[in-house]
């Protein structure tokens, strides 16, 4: 990838969000910097304010404390449910994103086809969302999100409603598309192995209030030419497995704090 080193695209300083006084803060004292082209996995139990965090980055919600710097154009976003418009075909769904992004009509048709080919769905343009499987819908959703040409792609548990086989394949697809497009991705999940497998950075969010309690850098372990796992005499898989166990343990510890 041709990324400019250490160019920050998202910066949060002491960010806090409170919806109502009696519920307390959803996010509090959150500091985070994300560089251009990074793949960041955000891990946390329910109630950790992960979705609120994405909404703040996307500009859908204003923080009540601190500051957030994100691209002024906003961010593309994907959800657990692809959120495709059921009255439009897959192709028209993608085209609407292009239209709303201001792409001239003449250029749209070819771009739609390009995007659908990128997610390996070259022949579904005329199908309605309900005629597609859940995994295919998510890929159309991804094509629609990419159509917006936004620097940042926010993904809110996009694979959590899919079956395990589809999820595995889509994880590989997402990594491939990430490498091709060079987008900055913030990926929310509650699945530790998914976070470790996808993210270059794995951030653990505490619950109520949500703040980042720990961070792991998995980038070096995934680079084939890296030093790490040979140094400790383990294979890459073993190292990542161990990391998964460590993070799982830490996540449970964090959840356990809420027991009374």
């Amino acid at each position: 990838m041709t990324t400019t080193p250490s160019e920050t695209v998202i910066r949060m300083e002491n960010l806090g969000k409170t919806f109502s006084a009696e519920d307390g803060a959803v996010l509090q004292g959150l500091d985070l910097e994300i560089e251009r082209g990074q793949f960041v996995a955000l891990l946390g139990a329910s109630g950790s304010g992960k979705t609120t965090l994405l909404n703040v980055v996307a500009g859908l919600e204003e923080p009540t404390e601190g500051s957030v710097t994100a691209p002024a154009q906003g961010a593309a976003m994907m959800f657990q449910d692809a959120g495709l418009f059921p009255w439009l075909t897959a192709g028209k769904n993608v085209e609407l994103a292009l239209e709303l992004a201001g792409v001239p009509k003449a250029a749209r048709k070819d771009r739609v086809q390009e995007l659908l080919e990128l997610v390996r769905l070259p022949s579904v343009a005329d199908k309605r969302p309900h005629e597609l499987s859940g995994g295919m819908r998510q890929r159309v959703g991804l094509a629609r999100a990419l159509a917006q040409e936004r620097e940042v792609l926010l993904m809110d548990e996009p694979f959590s409603a899919l079956d395990a086989i589809t999820r595995d394949l889509l994880q590989e697809e997402l990594l491939r598309i990430w490498e091709v497009t060079g987008r900055t991705i913030v990926f929310i999940t509650h699945n530790v192995s998914e976070a470790v497998h996808l993210g270059q950075r794995v951030l653990l969010l505490s619950s109520r209030p949500g703040k980042i309690v720990e961070e792991w850098d998995t980038g070096p372990w995934k680079d084939p030419g890296s030093y790490g796992f040979e140094a400790v005499g383990q294979s890459r898989e073993e190292t990542l497995d161990q990391l998964t166990r460590t993070i799982t343990h830490r996540l449970r510890e964090e959840i356990g704090r809420h027991a009374r």
Binding site: A58, L60, G74, A76, M77, F79, D81, G83, L84, F85, L96, A97, L100, A101, R144, Q148
Partner: peptide, 12 residues
């Protein structure tokens, strides 16, 4: 609500 949110995220 998801459709409305999708619409807003797409810039509508």
């Amino acid at each position: 609500p998801q459709l409305l949110k999708a619409g807003r995220v797409l810039g509508a």
